[in-house]
Computed example of a mutant assay.
Amino acid sequence: MIKKIIIAIVVAVVGYFAYGVLTTRSHSPLTTAEGSSGDLSVSVDYCQPYKKGRLIFGEASEEALVPYGKYWRLGANDATEITFSHKVNFAGKAVAAGRYRMYAVPNTDHWEVSLNSQLGEFGYFEPDYTLDVVKVQVPVQDGPTGGIEQLTMAFDSDSTGLLLNIAWDETMVSVPIAQQ
């Protein structure tokens, strides 16, 4: 009898976690943002969480979803990954062509955005920081009044190359990317 109860509990716990894993994509769907400038093409694969009435950026003491000064995977679920077809200047720093894990440490006035060579990881877990390829700081801009419900990454182009715009709630940052 006790054996059957233990088996039932194990099945219930495994079922609960399996359901969460199998339905997580519907809550934060996987998407790709793509941009190009001349011969350069850049793509970002990330999962798009929704605000759902939560405080997104703020202090940990305020129970912000993304606390200032802490690692953030730039999305949900899997780690966010960016791919460059050619060598680039990523906010002024040289980066070889290839695929990288991208994450951020948001602050009130700037974000530190990093590229890391550790790929294929679940984004919840912090990367091996010794594998960081580059860290850049970009200023925080005001997003649209009323905010953006779902995390969005999109590319704009200007005379120097591309701008990767990352926007959520009432916050936006732009990372300049230019082919070298």
Rank of each mutant, 00 (worst) to 15 (best):
Pro67Ile: 11
Met153Val: 03
Ser114Met: 05
Asp142Gln: 07
Ala64Arg: 12
Lys70Ala: 09
Glu81Met: 11
Asp156Trp: 09
Asp132Glu: 14
Asn77Asp: 04
Thr152Glu: 06
Gln137Ser: 15
Ile148Val: 08
Ala76His: 02
Val105His: 04
Met153Trp: 03
Pro106His: 10
Ser61Phe: 01
Asn77Val: 10
Phe125Glu: 10
Asp128Ile: 02
Thr152Val: 03
Ser85Gln: 02
Lys87Asn: 15
Tyr68Thr: 08
Tyr103Ala: 01
Lys87Gly: 08
Tyr68Phe: 15
Ala76Met: 09
Ser85Pro: 10
Phe90Asn: 01
Ser157Thr: 15
Val95Gly: 00
Asp78Arg: 02
Val140Met: 07
Gly123Ile: 11
Phe155Asp: 01
Ala96Asn: 14
Gly146Ala: 00
Ser61His: 03
Leu115Phe: 09
Gly120Glu: 13
Val133Asn: 00
Thr160Ala: 09
Asp142Ile: 08
Tyr129His: 14
Tyr71His: 04
Ile82Trp: 02
Ser157Ile: 02
Thr130Gln: 09
Thr145Phe: 03
Gly98Val: 13
Pro139Thr: 02
Ala91Lys: 09
Val105Trp: 05
Asp109Glu: 14
Leu74Glu: 03
Lys135Phe: 04
Asn107Arg: 07
Asp142Cys: 05
Asn107Cys: 01
Ala97Asp: 10
Asn77Pro: 13
Met153Phe: 01
Ala64Ile: 03
Thr145Gly: 10
Gln150Gly: 01
Asn107Met: 07
Thr152Leu: 12
Gly146Pro: 07
Ser117Cys: 01
Ala94Leu: 01
Gly75Phe: 11
Leu119Pro: 10
Asp156Lys: 15
Gly146His: 12
Glu126Tyr: 12
Leu115Trp: 02
Lys93Phe: 12
Val95Asp: 09
Thr108Phe: 03
Thr80Glu: 02
Glu62Tyr: 07
Gly161Val: 02
Gly161Arg: 00
Ala104Met: 10
Asp158Ile: 13
Lys87Tyr: 00
Lys135Cys: 10
Gln150Asn: 06
Val138Glu: 09
Thr152Pro: 04
Ala76Tyr: 07
Ala154Tyr: 14
Gln118Cys: 00
Glu63Pro: 00
His110Gln: 14
Leu115Tyr: 07
Gly98Met: 02
Gly92Ser: 11
Tyr71Ala: 12
Ala154Val: 14
Leu65Ile: 08
Tyr124Arg: 05
Pro67Arg: 07
Gln150Asp: 04
Ala76Glu: 10
Met102Asp: 03
Gln150Met: 15
Gly69Lys: 09
Pro139Met: 10
Gln141Met: 08
Thr80Leu: 03
Ser114Ile: 04
Gly120Asn: 08
Leu65Trp: 14
Arg73Thr: 10
Thr83Asn: 13
Leu151Val: 12
Gly143Leu: 14
Gln150Leu: 04
Phe155Pro: 04
Asn107Thr: 06
Gln137Tyr: 05
Val136Ser: 03
Asn77Glu: 06
Val95Thr: 07
Gly123Trp: 12
